[in-house]
Design a protein around this nucleic acid. Structure first.
Length: 497
RNA sequence: CGGGGUGUGGCGCAGUCCGGUAGCGCGCCUGGUUUGGGACCAGGAGGUCGCGGGUUCGAAUCCCGCCGCCCCGACCA
């Protein structure tokens, strides 16, 4: 499918640029239902690659997959007070189970059958804590049943007013892990372990640097004791919460009576954790690396890692270069790479280059008659740079190039984040910084929710996390950057998605 | 919910003020010539002009009502 539609430059309108990249890279499209999106094959492939990597990590750390139902009794949601308050305003409900024919024409041909009303409406899961812990209550009897560490890949629905492709849609795909433990320390180390897995995934696979830390009371998950998060900085200097891990304490255990008998014969409530990442990660990937030519995908998650573009004039040349191209493709695939050999003859090579670039392919191999004659191909990198490579050992050189690209993307993203971070901010600096370049602002925080709220109200900035030691400034801030009271923790503020 | 805008082939738009039965670019299809950074020529396909009603010999165009979508605010995270 050839196309020459232009991408709005990032610098001109970031939001339009984002949408254009998604359209040009054929990642997703709008659905007829407001706020919902269709994930197209190229976009879904990225998600599948993410899923595979994460799933392997979960499995390696002792988690097993299961599947819990889409529908949850409405009363379940109400059992945990904070939880219900957090989701009440955005749940979709099933209230009826039948339609009936009216005998009329067109849109009026069917209507809801009033006699099919459910006694208790069903909630379409916005998250599954309630249904899962109701089941845990049945399965957990003894300390010998613990820890119980499950994960599920599922879709969830949150009725959002403002939606954006991948970042916030009415329905989205995610994984949600749910675990039960004998004590707080075990639950805590689980929540931290998962946070570390998320961080590793973001950095190693997505080439997206993140800072880790804990959320403040006002930003934590409804119903959790503590929420940990990884936060990334997008190219427009807005923060993206890319993954969360919650220590749920015993809140849900008490609400759903999830108890176990101790070795000593006592009866205790379990300690739970829950954690998730979603298709929002795809949005994060796009906004971290892509440019005005389209998607830039890190090699490890690129649906197509290598595009081979043959160049020919005569039929004889075509036969020659495509035969060499096929051999190269076989070599690369044997090395485990994802390769497309672009033999379309309706398009000139240049048009193919632009198309593969928009799709985010990290490496392109151009093979023309002159290359065949000299036993080489031209290797072009998505980020720029072109040069000949020998066809002998081409798989090794391509693999090396992909590794270099993966590393370079991460280094560049981390460099950009540091360039757009300010430490030890004063109130005056903060107000200017958030307004103009934007980015991560590190400063002292007094811990007062009212101070936090005032900052948000006046600047729109929120505390993304109270960073973990590794990310804290060398010198701990003494005073709250806003009110001047003694600081209880360093905080990172930013405008956020 | 309040304010503003907009709805015309797949996409982007013109035509609306001054009613006469729909046009342009891109894309798509066919054939030919092309092919080392977005090819060219020729010939085609494709539209109940958001929906309903009204005025008129005649409505994309004028009038009334409704609906969708977008932006800002509110709300939310």
């Amino acid at each position: 499918m050839a196309q020459a539609q232009k991408i709005t430059p990032r610098a001109k309108d970031f939001s339009e640029w984002y949408g254009d990249v998604i359209a040009q890279a054929q990642l997703a499209d709008y659905s007829p239902v407001r706020g919902c999106m269709v994930i197209r094959p190229h976009g879904y492939r990225i998600w599948e690659l993410m899923q595979r990597a994460l799933d392997d990590m979960f499995r390696a750390s002792g988690h097993r997959n299961a599947y819990f139902p889409l529908f949850i009794p409405m009363s379940f949601l109400a059992r945990e007070a904070e939880h219900v308050e957090g989701f009440a305003k955005e749940v979709a409900l099933v209230t009826h189970t039948r339609l009936r024919a009216t005998g009329k024409e067109g849109k009026d041909a069917i209507e809801v059958d009033p006699s099919s009303a459910l006694e208790e409406p069903l909630v379409v899961r916005p998250t599954s804590e309630t249904i899962i812990y109701a089941m845990f209550a049945k399965w957990i009897q003894s300390y010998r049943d613990l820890p119980l560490k499950l994960n599920q890949w599922a879709n969830v629905v949150r009725w959002e007013l403002r939606t954006r492709l991948f970042l916030r849609t009415t329905e989205f795909l995610w994984q949600e892990g749910h675990t039960a433990h004998t004590d707080e320390a075990d639950a805590e180390s689980e929540a931290r372990l998962i946070l570390e897995i998320y961080r590793d995934f973001a950095e190693t696979w997505m080439a997206m640097p993140v800072i880790t830390g804990v959320k403040t009371e006002s930003e934590k998950f409804a119903g959790a004791l503590r929420t940990y998060a990884i936060e990334a900085l997008m190219q427009d200097n807005k923060a993206l919460q890319a993954g969360t891990s919650h220590n749920l304490g015993q809140n849900f255990a008490k609400a759903f009576t999830v108890q176990y008998q101790t070795a000593a014969g006592g009866l205790e409530y379990v300690w739970n954790t829950s954690w998730g990442v979603s298709t929002r990660l795809v949005g994060g990937l796009i906004m971290t690396h892509s440019d005005d030519n389209g998607l830039v995908a890190p090699p490890k998650l690129a649906p197509v890692q290598v595009a081979i573009v043959p160049i020919w004039k005569t039929d004889q040349e075509k036969q020659q270069v495509s035969s060499v191209g096929s051999q190269v493709q076989a070599d690369l695939e044997k090395a485990g790479l994802r390769v497309e050999h672009d033999l379309r003859d309706t398009m000139k090579p240049g048009a193919k280059y632009f198309e593969w670039e928009a799709l985010g392919v990290p490496v392109r191999l151009e093979i023309g008659p002159r290359d065949v004659a000299s036993g080489q191909a031209v290797l072009a990198r998505r980020g720029g740079g072109k040069g000949p490579v020998s066809l002998h050992g081409v798989a090794a050189s391509v693999t090396k190039a992909l590794d270099e690209i993966q590393a370079a993307l991460f280094a560049a993203a981390r460099e950009r984040r540091e360039q757009n971070s300010i430490r030890g901010v004063t109130k005056a600096q903060f107000i200017e910084f958030i307004k103009r370049p934007g980015g991560f602002a590190y400063g002292g925080f007094c811990g007062s929710p009212s101070c936090e709220a005032e900052i948000k109200q006046q600047t729109n900035a929120t505390i993304r996390v109270l960073p973990d030691p590794e990310f804290r400034s060398k010198e701990a801030p003494r005073n709250c950057m806003w009110c001047g009271a003694p600081s209880v923790a360093e905080a990172v503020w930013a405008l956020a998605y």
